[in-house]
Simulated scan of single mutants.
Amino acid sequence: MDVSNIVKRINELFNITNEEIYSKESGLTYHADKKVKKLGYSVNLTLDTIEEARIQGVDMMVTHHDAWGELYELKEACIEKLAEYGISHYYNHLPLDDCDFGTNDSLLKKLNLEIVKRTHEWEGLYFGRVAESDEKIEFNELVNRMVNLLEEPVKFWRFNDKKVKRVGLVCGNGAPTDCLKEAVENGCDVYITGECNLSTIQYAQFKRINLIIGSHTFTELFGIESLALKLNENIKELEVVRLNEGHYEVNN
């Protein structure tokens, strides 16, 4: 299938209310101008994921993140490598955080939590959620669910002794305290995200809300996986594979 047709199929999955914002937050970064038989998905576009795509014989990559601009010279290096290998690349960022099959909704579904509110609005897109458990659960049980789901250790801080009923979530980077503040204002017992810093922890301690911090990559994996699997359902001749990404472990 042509790359342009795959991008068209992707766009049809989204309720696009603002074309300008959608085009700024998604799109093709490299078109190899060849038919796509095998598509690979990952959260990040890096030289390592491109190499993984080459090894797996992928014709097109679909990722949640483009190469970050602040990682100086990485974007140019990725485009050069994609051209060398003849691999097309498409990314979808905030629209995938917002949609009902994306990063936040997919993670909450796997945690067996029911979404009650879309939160953290930017330009008409909502990159956070409030969800609830049918029954109150122990905080440690929720931590264990996260560990088993992400298949990696998570950081957690317990700042209250309540069982968990209501959860605030921002997949990826919800470290800013204004993100946490919205979870507090929504009466959440625990806040889950993929990044934190000292102010995140101190504000959670001040507001007595529990914290669970996974990684930016693996809190968002299930959203891009969901997008890829939808393509697989809609385009029967398309083979879809996951491109493995390493776990980044920070040693303090």
Rank of each mutant, 00 (worst) to 15 (best):
V3N: 03
L71N: 11
D66Y: 07
K24F: 10
D59P: 05
E51W: 03
R242K: 15
E239Y: 08
I87M: 03
S88P: 00
R9I: 10
E20T: 10
G86V: 08
H31S: 12
G124S: 06
L108R: 05
V250I: 15
I87Q: 00
H120L: 15
N173I: 07
R9A: 14
D189N: 03
V58W: 00
V147A: 07
M1T: 14
G168P: 08
I209C: 03
E80P: 02
F206N: 06
N5L: 11
S4G: 08
V58G: 00
D100K: 09
L150A: 09
E52P: 01
I16F: 07
K34P: 02
Q202R: 13
S199R: 14
V250H: 15
N144D: 15
K136L: 04
A77D: 10
N112G: 07
R54A: 12
F156H: 13
H89M: 00
N44W: 07
A131H: 03
C99I: 04
T49G: 01
N186Y: 09
E237G: 09
I87N: 01
Y203A: 04
E233N: 15
L28P: 00
P95A: 09
K8I: 04
D189K: 04
C99V: 04
A175H: 03
N148M: 11
K75W: 02
E152W: 10
V167C: 00
G187C: 05
L149V: 02
F159K: 00
N186L: 05
T193C: 06
K110V: 08
S215K: 11
I16N: 04
L227V: 09
A204M: 01
I6H: 06
I137V: 12
Y72R: 11
N232I: 08
R145A: 06
